[in-house]
Amino acid sequence: MSQVFLPHTLEELWTIKQENPAALIMAGGTDLLVKIRDRKLPPAVILALENIAELRQIERQDGEICIGSMVTHQQLLDSPIIQTQLPVLHQAVAVLGSPPIRHMGTIGGNICTASPAGDTLPPLYVLNAGLELKNAATSRLLPIQDFIQGPGQTLLGSNEILYKIRISIPAPHSQGFYFKVGQRKALAIAICSMASLLQFAEDKRILEGRFAWGSTGPTVMRFPEVENTLIGEKLSPIILGRLGQSMAALVSPISDVRASAEYRRLLASKLPLKIWQSLI
């Protein structure tokens, strides 16, 4: 039998963590407990964050939205702030897992799992999200793309937790898109996903275009050099198709039980056109 701790404050958490250095942090448990069941992780002392109220808030401060790591996907879905200010994230959590998974799973868990298929990641990449990491003594802020190093690999320190996700509210006249291709319409892990944040000028020309691809490499990927080619263009199927072609050449997907690398690459080339499909 292993112990399970459910601290109510961060102070309690740090004490427990100090006394149980090998303890595993648990948020919603939807990744962690599956891994333990599959014996990909050994049974260990569990340190659950669910009772720490300050991790559960979504706040807006000036131009920034601050999301506690223990905010569930359902909370994001229900939040008017997310819906109006960060639609790209909102669209992603709407297609994440299933209702009970969204009731339990958290944004912090999705980030720390660091799966290239994680649905909140491409949106967070295009939003240039910053992650606030905290230990008993200090805190630090890392851009998400620095934090995530590879599949399941992050720069989380052994005494740290992910505390908050900080996101600058996108400029006005921005539009966000999230598309995911899974093997079915619900309970589907992304075979290929794409988030996009487009900022338009008055004359509908693109001022800035950001794109992030999921499930097409060891981490979510962005290619600024390709993004830059959009600047000054107007949206059209030709532009989007061309963008897809360039991206597809850069991604590095793998084949697994869900899909072949070839299919993933093809999807990567097509997903930008989904933007067009959704607008007409």
């Binding site: 399970v4 448990g29 407990l33 659950a48 669910e50 339990m104």
Partner: peptide
Amino acid sequence: KLSCLMLAAQ
């Protein structure tokens, strides 16, 4: 919620 992914302590 899913009772197969919850621990008794929760």
